[in-house]
Nucleic acid binder design. Sequence first.
DNA 1: ATGAGGTGGTAAAGCGGTTTCACACTTCGC
DNA 2: GCGAAGTGTGAAACCGCTTTACCACCTCAT
Lengths: 339, 339
Amino acid sequence: MLFGVPREKSVRLSDVAAVAGVSLATASKALNGNTRISEATRERVRVAAERLDFRPDALARSFASGRSGTIGVLTHRAKNTFAQPVAMGAILQLGAQNQAALVYDGDVKESKAMSDSLRELRARRIDGLLVIGDGHEHTSPSLTHNFDVPVRYIFTASSDPNDVLYLPDNREAGRLATQHLLDTGNTRIAHLGGPQNSIAAERRLAGMTDALTAAGLEPVGPITRSDWTRVCGAASMAELLQSGAMFDAVFCGNDHIALGAMETCAAAGVRIPDDVALVGVDNWEGTVVDQDGSRQLTSVDLELMELGRLGAASMAAADHAPGEHFSTPTLAIGPSSRV
Amino acid sequence: MLFGVPREKSVRLSDVAAVAGVSLATASKALNGNTRISEATRERVRVAAERLDFRPDALARSFASGRSGTIGVLTHRAKNTFAQPVAMGAILQLGAQNQAALVYDGDVKESKAMSDSLRELRARRIDGLLVIGDGHEHTSPSLTHNFDVPVRYIFTASSDPNDVLYLPDNREAGRLATQHLLDTGNTRIAHLGGPQNSIAAERRLAGMTDALTAAGLEPVGPITRSDWTRVCGAASMAELLQSGAMFDAVFCGNDHIALGAMETCAAAGVRIPDDVALVGVDNWEGTVVDQDGSRQLTSVDLELMELGRLGAASMAAADHAPGEHFSTPTLAIGPSSRV
DNA sequence: ATGAGGTGGTAAAGCGGTTTCACACTTCGC
DNA sequence: GCGAAGTGTGAAACCGCTTTACCACCTCAT
């Protein structure tokens, strides 16, 4: 397979100008949308550029304009966490915008290495900065005022309330899960929640309440708390069953809790989804999909790649409203809920 | 938290030269390791640069030198496949080398979009190119002669035998798995292989044979074939049991096959690892780790992030031996083999 | 002494665009 | 009819570093 991309020396702007019969300056302005150019001239230059297949040398352009076409990306331990899809989504989006990514991975709390990276990013004259967290309850130090280019915080909180944040929409996730349960005929819905101090857990519950309130309902049974793990989820489910509450569906704070709940139900002879429908949150491949590749759980997908994509795309729109922006979760329907 | 990185105008090389009492040219050469400079002068310039905290403007440097500090990365459908850890490993390594990554994701077979990307990469004056495949039996068209910078092919074959490839070491994976089984006291080892036409499957088997031959042994029972899936793995195991062969361990072509085999064993009352030890390949989180986070399988990890890392690192060493280079697999021990 | 060869340094020419500023030429208001 | 304001264009400065070409000097063999 051949790609007709020869290696001969490339055409310069001066060549274009010569062909179009205008000066270098005029050619530059014509191609860069500067006003103060007659439409006729602009078109003439455009045609010449087109004909010569002119591609401006990115290096020269960067140097002259001060814009590097490179975005700095600071990740927080991207190797281990599931910040990976977020980072990947962001980087692919940057590529689609013809922007390179200069990625420094590290621990946001190690300010020594940090300030070194920042120096380097500055020397590189980056056009923007993405700070990507790992989604845990952890606040990134605000770097916005260290740079005069846009900074976005993705999948993390920041220490400055005026920063621009991109986060998964946990509230909508809770609402979506609950609405799905309502739509499939359930009316008495319980909740197995995450940790008490988790903002994400709070928001998922708030979203659930939104949906129930809109339907004139309330959560059924005790709102249990757990640390997101399967074991805790199983215990929570046991507690719920013991409480004697009557329920036909359970919204679980995440997939691990949901799987724990399934386990307890199986042991107690409660059929899923016939007796009780379950919905979880995360839709993480290794969690909700069984080893034979079949899905075993209905789950809300937080769309982490999309989250990264949105954050990266927002750099283009230079000034941006401060505060939280969200990726929209989607529902992945599996056999743990009715249809 | 504050990072003492002020925003004042940065020092230029001319400032350094002035402080050191030398010319601009001398300062440049002193800092860039050019010979033809006395050690005394060089040191004087170094000290001056240090004192002023001089950071050369990357844009100007790129423009002047023609080196962009950017590496092009072409991925093949990175969103869906597990090329993702490979790409991530590569990109993080590039960052560690202070190189930016310009990532274009697409389908290598769509030559239209492809040649467009190549044009753009050329205009960007990339310092190197990484072609990252998805590990499937699929050959990337060779782009080496479209660029005068180094090109590396990672996790994919290329159409030109003189290209530089980085691949997981499937043969060593097979050897490692088998050696582990030998080391833990097994002597009659069977194999449940992947598809007949898969190079990866062939190599894993070859590695197994290496280890057995070195120990004066041979594979036991029929070498079964399957399409990497759990269902096929289960069938293969049934076939092996039926064959009447006596074996105390099985090296499985991948983790899915191993899990299928476990299933069959469970149904047949064969205890693992007491009666039969199992080892798989891939160590993919969603596969070998049970939902409660505990490992259920011994598996060879192909070290995909490391693979990406190696490929990226090799760009620094400008000219490089053509042919295949490997990342070294590691063994992740779980309860499916004895200790 | 003398020219060849080696060292250590400098002045200046790029690199290929963008952007500023001055200039010529219209158009318009009074 | 004439100055003021507006419009389109080009000459040249500039971005900050790398690299080439050249020069001054010093050493050494002839």
